[in-house]
Design a protein around this nucleic acid. Sequence first.
RNA 1: GCGCCUGUAGCUCAAUUGGAUAGAGCAACGGAUUUCUAAUCCGUAGGCUGCAGGUUCAAUUCCUGCCAGGCGCGCCA
Length: 559
Amino acid sequence: MEPREEIINQLKELTNLKEINLETPKGNFGDYAFPCFALSKTSKKNPAQIAKDLESKIKVTNIIEKVQAVGPYLNFFLNRKVIAETILKKIAKEKNKFGSGKHTKAGHHVGYPTAEKILVEHTSINPNASPHIGRARNALLGDFIVRLLKFQGYEVQTHYFVNDIGKQIAMLVLAAEGRENITFNDLLTLYIKINEKIEKEPELEKDVFELLNKLERGDEKTKKRFADIVDICVKGQLEILSELNIKYDKFDFESDYLWTKKTERVLEELKKTGRLFLDDEQRYVLDQKEFNLPMESPVLVLTRADKTSLYPLRDLAYHIDKKKTKNILVLGEDQKLYFQQLKCALTLLNKPVPIPVFYSFVLLETGKMSTRKGNLVLLEDFMREALQRETEEIRTRHDRINEEDAKKIAYGAIKYSILKVSPERNVIFSWKALQFEGDTGPYLQYACARINSILRKYDEKIDEKIDFSLFKTNEENNLIKMLADFEGIIEESERTLKPTIIVNYIYSLAQSFSNFYIKCPILKAEEKLKKARLLLASSVKQVIETGLNILGIETLEKM
RNA sequence: GCGCCUGUAGCUCAAUUGGAUAGAGCAACGGAUUUCUAAUCCGUAGGCUGCAGGUUCAAUUCCUGCCAGGCGCGCCA
């Protein structure tokens, strides 16, 4: 039985509580702590007294070594040897599957039969230009979720919804008119220029709408013009994202929902609900008064006056089409209210609603980022800069530069710096975020590289009999305790879908390891202790590596 | 104007979802290399958790009001 489970079971029996809230305290308050305040509410007794009472009733076992009431807390001290043996053996056995609660419950390590299928949609950038760093937040967050869920044994499909028929694409098509050999790098300038132009001469908008109208009527030439531009753009975007090791299983094109008449069918369905009507200007709108949305006039506009489709209609058709039992959708905070509207519409049609994951925008020191206005930092520029700085960094340390390794470190630093910030917070972009020391990706990679170096030097198998009672120091026991927390960390990550939980955990694990590394020599230790410490170090490496991989960060053999 | 999110050390972020002494990194200063990688470690300094009330045994966390920033509120996506 897991130590945590054993404590919870005992407490449940003694207190009649359904949920036991165990804390892992800091300082010398033991391995687990149970606060007794909640009990004092019902029993009207002093929490300190309750803790004292419980202290005498808890049974000491081979796992629970000591129980101590300290004020209103009941602190549990576990048997070091048993914990060390349980957890280190488990890691050695499960390797890169360690931490995945689902796998262990199923009793085997790969492909357990009833894997739930989950569709994750993320990135879904407008195909109008190279992505800026704000968009990276979507892709990185989405990629993290995909990796986490795959690690947990789900069958995950990653989708990218391509808006290939919006007004912005039409503008880009207009801007590209009569130009040959347009490349990905031309798009941003074209896009900025056409926006400026239309702002100055609003009558040009008519041409844009005409183009859209022609497209929706299925004019082949127009279709091809749109498709060509979109193709250039999506390919360019994907090249950048794939450089960051972010991949997609399927691309869904908005236009398909027109050609297959699925948008029309959605309108038919909505008509049956009695909430769809034509407004004064002959647009199809969905009445959403009944849902108490915080808007002045709660309607969802689905078409233009000429009945060409608007994004919400295509999006609605898309979500209905997803048909998975579980969908996750990564969205910018600007989509929050819109998502509520989408949710209401889907509910009205009795369709499943995706689980949204929101993130806030990346701002510049000078103000907001805008692709349209051209004040932005491109993801590719950020990546290039990171790589350049990292290459220089390596030059100060080594004679030779391995470009693959430089990329792993540079991109790891980028991913880490973005994922370590809670998604709901705004980020003000600064080149200073590109650090390689301290609370950074490279710090974690470095910890792994150091362990690799030791394992290389030892050069024997470490799976022999190990005396688990040899771990005497605080540094060793602290590491063991932390390793035992990993499964809980993964569980919490899955529940909240927040990358920061894993980030914080592996960072403090690496910190504890550095501590251990300085104070506890491994290879120089006496033979039995050496073996025990080697196993401990390789376990730490395994867990940091697993954590980093879930964040999409690779590790290195040497640094 | 209304709704949602955010405000913590000079800077960038944590804080076990209401718990014990609010913790890290960067920057600053001082130290550690006959020992497994110094992208490391140790130490010093740095706090009225935006402000004012309230709820309770306990508030950075929950409630109310203000202040500041972000996002949104019909034909963009």
